[in-house]
């Protein structure tokens, strides 16, 4: 049961990864791509890590740390990239 949920979360995460990464190849603005990347890289990766967490609960402290730092760093990087790319010009 737990195993199935864990696999389900990981598959969901990989689906998010694909869905969010494919728009990267298109010709949209940096900001639009940033929205879809936050779906894939933050939310998808979080789903995968939670899946791993269910698989090996004994390592929960480090995986929880990974989860928290993933959420914070990716979000902050999104903000920094958005800020820098819109301030410096050349934002198409």
């Amino acid at each position: 049961m737990i195993d199935n949920i864990s696999y389900g979360l990981m598959v969901l995460g990989v689906v998010f990864w694909f869905w969010g990464t494919v728009p990267l190849l298109g010709h949209r603005s940096v900001l639009y791509k940033l929205h879809s990347l936050s779906v894939s890289d933050t939310l998808g990766s979080m789903a995968i890590v939670v899946g791993l967490l269910l698989k090996i609960p004994r390592e929960w402290p480090l995986l929880l740390l990974a989860l928290i730092s993933l959420a914070i760093w990716n979000t902050v990087l999104g903000y920094v990239l958005a800020y820098c790319s819109s301030q410096g010009g050349g934002n198409d």
């Binding site: 929205h35 879809s36 914070i72 979000t75 902050v76 999104g78 958005a82």
Partner: peptide, 14 residues
């Protein structure tokens, strides 16, 4: 800023 940027539909620019 974290809460706003964390949700995929919105990103804080400045």
């Amino acid at each position: 800023v974290f809460v706003i940027t964390f949700t995929p539909k919105t990103i804080v620019l400045n």
